[in-house]
Amino acid sequence: MNPNKVIQLAIKAGSLLLESGAETYRVEDTIVRICNNYEMVDTNCFCTQTGIMLSSIYDGTTYSQVARISTRSTNLDRIGKINQLSRDARILNVEQFESQLNHIVETKTYSLLTNVLFAGICTFGFALLFKGTWIDALCAFILGVIVRYCTLLFEAKELNSFFTISMSAIFITLSALIFEQIHLIANRNTVIISTIMLLVPGLAITNAIRDSIAGDLVSGTARGVEALLIAIAVALGSGIAMTIWISLGGMI
């Protein structure tokens, strides 16, 4: 067995988990389990929102590696598969583990059509939940589809997330105000809130609380700050849109 290879695979698995939105404790637990399954001992792993530090001992020699995490998204399916693979590693050799990990990485996620369609369905449902009319829900559906498509486009171009969220909030708010001005919808607030739900950092808030309770204060604080910045971006975008609307003579 090549211990360097095991360390590299453990780091790769951990990086994929962090990039997919996994909690810090889950990443550390998965990395340690992988190393232990291949007879490495005294494994120590420290993860934050933006990096992983790992060291482990094999046959009296210490092996270590550091990884920098620069991208983050949400892929619960990938998290589940990698977590299960780490448990199955005890019956797999290193080559088989690497093959299955690469297969997980290459597995395609939802298509663009599925992404935007279900984003629209999500906003449609929220509009009805917030007691909007069917027309309000339909407008929220259209805005949800457009916002999700633009968000994916901006992510592909690696634009700053704060800018992306702010621009999305501006578009949502201005569109709802225009729809109300032409008497297409009954309540602009319902449409705005329903569509903005796509931008709410629910996973970041949940993981921040979970990491803090588990004692991972650095990661918990980092995720909390990330959630706060997203909330500020949403509020800033909506505020800018309303300011523009009022300056153009519109009524709020």
Results as ranks from 00 to 15, higher is better:
Thr123Pro: 01
Ile165Gln: 03
Ile82Arg: 04
Leu236Thr: 11
Glu180Ile: 11
Glu158Phe: 14
Leu174Glu: 06
Gly144Thr: 07
Gly144Val: 05
Met242Asp: 14
Ile165Gly: 00
Ser212Ile: 08
Thr151Met: 15
Met53Ser: 12
Thr206Leu: 05
Ile31Asp: 00
Asn4Trp: 13
Ile135Tyr: 11
Arg26Ser: 01
Ile193Asp: 00
Leu129Gly: 12
Glu106Ala: 15
Phe171Val: 09
Ala222His: 11
Asn102Phe: 12
Thr109Phe: 13
Ile104His: 06
Gly60Cys: 05
Leu228Lys: 11
Met40Cys: 01
Lys108Asp: 10
Leu85Cys: 01
Glu106Gly: 15
Phe130Pro: 04
His183Met: 13
Ile34Ser: 03
Ser194Tyr: 06
Ser219Lys: 07
Leu228Glu: 03
Lys131Asn: 12
Phe179Leu: 12
Gly220His: 07
Thr123Glu: 02
Arg148Asp: 07
Glu28Gly: 01
Val200His: 03
Asn37Ile: 07
Cys122Trp: 14
Ala119Phe: 06
Glu155Arg: 13
Glu226Phe: 09
Ile57Gly: 11
Phe154Asp: 11
Ala169Ser: 04
Asn189Thr: 14
Ile240Ala: 05
Thr48Asn: 04
Ser20Gln: 04
Leu248Lys: 09
Ala10Gly: 05
Ile11Arg: 10
Asp29Cys: 09
Leu18Asp: 01
Ile182Glu: 06
Leu138Phe: 13
Gly21Pro: 04
Ala119Gln: 06
Ile142Asp: 01
Ser20Asn: 05
Gln65Tyr: 11
Ala241Gly: 04
Ile244Arg: 04
Phe46Ser: 01
Leu152Gln: 10
Cys35Ala: 07
Ile178Gly: 09
Leu54Cys: 04
Ile31Val: 07
Gln8His: 15
His103Arg: 13
Ile252Tyr: 15
Ile11Lys: 10
Ile209Ala: 06
Ile7Asp: 00
Asn36Ser: 10
Phe179Asn: 07
Arg148Val: 09
His183Trp: 14
Phe97Ser: 00
Thr109His: 13
Ser219Glu: 02
Thr221Tyr: 15
Glu106Gln: 15
Ile205Ser: 03
Ile135Val: 10
Asn4Gly: 09
Asn83Ala: 12
Thr190Gly: 05
Asn2Leu: 07
Met242Lys: 15
Arg210Pro: 02
Ser86His: 06
Ile57Lys: 14
Ala10Lys: 07
Thr71Phe: 13
Val145Leu: 05
Asp42Val: 08
Ser56Gly: 07
Ala13Trp: 03
Asp29Arg: 03
Thr133Ser: 06
Ser86Met: 06
Asn83Glu: 11
Arg26Pro: 04
Ala169Trp: 00
Trp134Thr: 12
Cys47Ser: 09
Ile244Lys: 03
Glu158Ala: 14
Ile182Lys: 08
Ile170Pro: 03
Tyr58Ser: 03
Ala119Cys: 08
Arg87Gln: 13
Val225Pro: 00
Thr74Leu: 13
Asn4Gln: 12
Ala204Ile: 01
Gln65Trp: 11
Ile7Tyr: 02
Leu117Ile: 10
Ala208His: 05
Phe163Gln: 12
Ile252Gln: 11
Ser175Ala: 08
Phe97Gly: 00
Ala214Gly: 08
Leu113Ile: 14
Arg33Cys: 10
Asn44Leu: 09
Thr24Lys: 07
Gly215Glu: 03
Ala22Ile: 06
Leu138Val: 10
Thr24Met: 05
Asn93Thr: 03
Ile11Gln: 09
Leu198Ala: 01
Leu174Lys: 00
Ala208Cys: 07
Gly224Asp: 00
Ile244Met: 08
Glu226Gly: 10
Ala204Pro: 08
Gln65Ala: 14
Met1Tyr: 14
Ser64Phe: 15
Met40Ser: 04
Ser73Leu: 12
